[in-house]
Structures are given as structure tokens and as C-alpha cells.
Nucleic acid binder design. Structure first.
Length: 483
RNA sequence: GCGGAAGUAGCUCAUUUGGUAGAGCGAUAGCCUUCCAAGCUAUAGGUGGCCGGUUCGAGCCCGGUCUUCCGCUCCA
């Protein structure tokens, strides 16, 4: 276990040292649970996102992508249930340090009372909760001498509101106050655009809408590097289906998504399903695809059958009809007609997938050389198709015209994929630097190149190399990064 | 939020009853070098996480605070 922990520490250090991830505002001692992606990390993250986007939109005829704004009308979050369910008044007992939800604490106390007194207390609590009267709730607890079940004391902190949504102000919102929220999930941007996309895209059920983007949650405890952050990026796809067929599609996406992760180089044995026992208010089935992170099995992606909850809620709150007319014929030969579609959601944490790829890729290798001495390297075996830099072009020496040939090759390759040019230090040192950032291919230009236009290409994963015509380099790398 | 551990150069660490900070690696510039980090020369980098206190004097003692990791807790 301690080895695993150390390994995780090393991955974190490596990410910082080679420009993958920095702590946000590090110059000012950092901001808790917020991270920046560096020059390497941003490219890797983009490559992962692009793969997902392609697999969803380009490879599925019936899925289209959108990009909804982070700010949304405040009523969206009432309709979705986030305003009511994403926020709870909490109170801590100073002696036991145990934290309670205020309503749970009072309800537990009510059970010890007779019916009349209990009902009166509940009525009082509901009134205070509705009024957001936090001080009133505290004095209610104190005047009723409600004790902590562990410390048996009434030594309470103030009641505090824990809302997982970040709020801010906007200029002009007609109704409600001028408080708006930073979205805690991207899904709602898809639901509120359901009709727009369906009509303008002439989409026929079943079809999906995909989206990637930032979401924000004011987690009380956010930790484990980029696993749980306050600002994070989701890659979500909402698949709209005919009511009654949702389990079929739920199973389809369950399989499809797991296979996709495997196609990203994640070994099958590191992935597993975890069915939700307790379902959220909107779901009739839910599971996580979990990955074995260095700190244990954790959720990587969620597959949820969300029923017609979201579209119905938005229909209700917006007072607009959100339905689909299905012309397909049923068993009786009649069109299915109007209905509110059911939704199967797939939702991946992009940052978590990034962490998955990085923790799988990071390796410390040791071996014995032919002369009997020990050698080692740190290598990031990032799959070639998502590696930030695909090819390093290295003149063996920085003289004798070798850099000129190398820059020719640079010009030929760089319009097609990311290349890196380096002429400093011994060749072995340059190879190790490329290993550390995860560059899958290195090409070296030497004196023989001047004679016969061949170069050596060196493979990161095996450290083997072969001699090929320089004119083949572009084609060969393109071939390897497309699979 | 509670408890534990930690924070000194880009990285890993030294500086031992408190006396104004060093090394290795790395980086940069150059030299040497015909394929897997190890040769030579030079240079740059730290108000010791931050703020305050004790002291003639604090990296070291004390208080607070920020951040990270671990264990709880939390995560509709």
C-alpha cells in the first residue's frame, strides 16, 4: 500500500516537473483543489477530449455535439432539483466534531417526543428552513436541548449553509434575484436545447447530444490531486430514446463506453462496473465504470438512465411542451405518436480520464546493460494517438549540416502532427527527456543520412530502433498515430 | 470540517542544544562527442510557504495562516 501511495506521489511530481499539471495560482501558495494544465497537459487533455468527441459525433450518425454556456437561467437549477437537493444546512458538534444535517438532527430528536410536541417542532423547523433562518435553526436546537449522539452535549457551532453550487451575480434577470449559478453539471445545457437541436437537426429518435465543458462544485472536501476538483471538465452525452426502450440502450451504452475506454489503452482488468444500489431521484438505473486508481477503485464514468425526469421538469417549469412526435409504427401498425423521450446519459470526467491515462502510462524501468551496469529510465507510455508530442527530430550532432536536414524534416512533418526539435546534449540524454514527456517516436539524423537519405527511428516503448528512408517518416508516424 | 505527516534552489535532500544556507542531479551558454542520462568550462536560481511573537540574534523555539498527501467525514 505504501508503495502505491509513493507511486502516486511520484506521478504527481512528474506531472509538475514536465509541464503536465501545476497547482492553480501556485505563485500565491495555491488555491485548494484547483489545478492548471501546463504545456504538455493541455495538449494531452485536448487529445483525449478530441478522441471522445470523434467517437461520439463523427462515428455515430445519430449523435451531434453542442457547446452550451456555463451560465444558465436560475430556474434551470430549480427544475433540475439542484437548488433543493444540492444544498443543506449543516451544524457541527464542537466536542465530538461530528457534523449533522440540521433537518436530520431535529427529526431524530422528534422521534423521542410525543406526537403533539414532535409535530409542533417539525412545523417550526420547516418554517425556519423555508425562511433560510440559520440563526433561528440554531436557537431551535439549543432551546430544545438537542444533544449530539456521540458527545451527549449541546456545544454546537453556528448553522452553516452548504450549497455545492457556486453563485455569482449577473446584470439583468427578470424574475428571482440576480443570483445565477455556475453549472454543477453540463447535462442541463443539453436538456434545455433538446427541442432546438431536434428540430433544426431534424433528429429522429433514438439520437444523442454530446457536449464537453467545465462544471463547478463547491466540494467541502476536494482532494486526491485532480480526481476531485472544484472546477472540472465533463464529457457528457444524453441519448434520447422511446419510453420503454431505455434499458436496452442503457445496456448498449454500458458495453460501448467500456469498450471505448479499452480502446484508449486501459486494460480490461483495471475497469469494472459498479451498480448503484441507492438511485438518485431522477434515475431508474445507474452504474459507474470504475478504474483502479493508485488510491483504489473510483468512478471514471457514470451511465444513468434518467427517465423523462429532466425534460418533464423543464416542461413544467418553463410551461412549454417538450415532446417528440414518433412516426415509427408500433405493433398495431400505428405511429407511436407524441411522448416525452427517456434519456440515457453517459458522463465521463475528463480530468479523471487524464489521471487514468497518466497513472497507467507512468513507469520507472530498470535493466542491466550488456556491460553489466545498471540503467534506468522514467517513461510515460502514453498511447501514440493521444501523446502530446508525436515525434522528436534530433540531429546527432549540431554541425556538419545535420541540423539543416533535420529542419527540412521538421517542415515536412509539423503540419501533420506535433513535432519537437532538439539538438542539445548527447543523443541518449535527449531520448530520456522524450521518454519522460511521453514522445512515442524519435528520429535521428546522422552522417549516413547525408549519403543515402535514411534516418534511424527509435521507439519509446521498446527502445529499439530501425533505419528507414527519411521520406517514409511522415507516413510511418501518421500510420501509428491513427490506430 | 476533525486528526496525522509535510513545506529549505526546477527536483531529491543537508545544515543536530538558535549565530545572517550547502551538495548532488537538473537548467542555461559554450567545448568535446557517430545512437540510450554519467567528459570539460562557465553562468543563473533561495527575503528557508506566508504573517506575527520570543531573543542581542530564528530555517531551527512559540502562535496563527496557506497548501499538499494520508485517515475519518462528505460526495442528491
Amino acid at each position: 500500500m505504501s508503495n502505491i501511495t509513493n507511486n502516486f506521489q511520484e506521478i504527481i511530481s512528474h506531472c509538475k516537473e514536465y509541464g503536465y499539471i501545476f497547482q492553480s495560482s501556485e505563485l500565491y501558495d495555491g488555491l485548494s483543489a484547483v489545478y492548471d494544465y501546463g504545456q504538455m497537459g493541455a495538449q494531452l487533455k485536448k487529445n483525449i477530449r478530441d478522441e471522445w468527441w470523434k467517437s461520439m459525433t463523427q462515428l455515430h450518425d445519430n449523435i451531434v455535439g453542442i457547446d452550451a454556456a456555463i451560465f444558465m437561467h436560475p430556474t434551470v437549477w430549480k427544475a433540475s432539483g439542484h437548488v433543493d437537493n444540492f444544498s443543506d444546512p449543516m451544524i457541527d458538534n464542537k466536542d465530538s466534531n461530528k457534523r449533522y444535517r440540521v433537518d436530520h438532527l431535529i427529526e431524530a430528536h422528534v422521534e423521542t417526543l410525543d406526537k403533539a410536541a414532535g409535530d409542533a417542532l417539525l412545523a417550526e423547523m420547516d418554517k425556519l428552513l423555508a425562511a433560510d433562518d440559520l440563526a433561528g435553526l440554531k436557537s431551535l436546537i439549543e432551546t430544545n436541548k438537542i444533544k449530539c449522539s456521540i458527545s451527549k452535549t449541546c456545544n454546537w457551532t453556528d448553522v452553516r449553509q452548504f450549497n455545492l453550487m457556486f453563485s455569482t451575480q449577473i446584470g439583468s434577470v427578470a424574475e428571482e434575484a440576480d443570483t445565477i449559478y455556475l453549472r454543477p453539471e453540463t447535462a442541463q445545457g443539453i436538456f434545455v436545447n433538446f427541442l432546438n437541436v431536434q428540430k433544426t437537426g431534424r433528429m429522429k429518435i433514438p439520437f444523442g447530444i454530446a457536449q464537453t465543458g467545465k462544471a463547478f462544485r463547491n466540494e467541502i472536501v476536494a482532494r486526491q490531486f485532480i480526481f476531485r476538483m472544484r472546477e472540472f471538465e465533463q464529457m457528457e452525452m444524453q441519448f434520447f430514446v422511446r419510453p420503454g426502450t431505455q434499458m436496452e440502450w442503457y445496456n448498449y451504452w454500458k458495453e460501448t463506453r467500456k469498450k471505448w475506454h479499452e480502446s484508449m489503452g486501459i486494460p480490461t482488468e483495471k475497469l469494472r462496473y459498479h451498480d448503484h444500489v441507492k438511485l438518485a431521484h431522477y434515475a431508474d438505473a445507474a452504474l459507474d465504470i470504475e478504474f483502479e486508481f493508485p488510491f483504489g477503485w473510483k468512478e471514471l464514468e457514470g451511465i444513468h438512465s434518467r427517465t423523462d425526469f429532466d425534460l418533464s421538469q423543464h416542461a413544467k417549469y418553463s410551461k412549454k411542451k417538450i415532446q417528440y412526435f414518433d412516426n415509427d409504427l408500433n405493433a398495431e401498425g400505428k405511429p407511436y405518436g407524441n411522448y416525452t423521450p427517456f434519456v440515457v446519459e453517459t458522463s465521463v470526467g475528463l480530468d479523471r480520464l487524464f489521471l487514468t491515462i497518466v497513472s497507467l502510462s507512468y513507469l520507472e524501468e530498470k535493466w542491466t546493460k550488456e556491460d553489466g551496469t545498471e540503467d534506468s529510465r522514467v517513461v510515460m507510455k502514453i498511447p501514440a494517438k493521444i501523446a502530446p508530442v508525436k515525434l522528436a527530430i534530433l540531429p546527432l550532432l549540431k554541425k556538419d549540416g545535420l541540423p539543416e536536414i533535420a529542419s527540412q524534416l521538421m517542415n515536412e512533418c509539423k503540419p501533420h502532427f506535433h513535432c519537437f526539435y532538439e539538438e542539445k546534449d548527447a543523443i541518449g540524454k535527449r531520448y530520456r527527456r522524450m521518454d519522460a514527456i511521453g514522445t512515442p517516436f524519435c528520429v535521428t539524423i546522422d552522417h549516413q543520412t547525408k549519403e543515402d537519405n535514411t534516418v534511424t527511428i527509435r521507439y519509446r516503448d521498446t527502445m529499439t530502433q530501425e533505419r528507414i528512408p527519411m521520406s517514409e517518416v511522415k507516413r510511418l508516424v501518421m500510420e501509428k498515430i491513427c490506430c
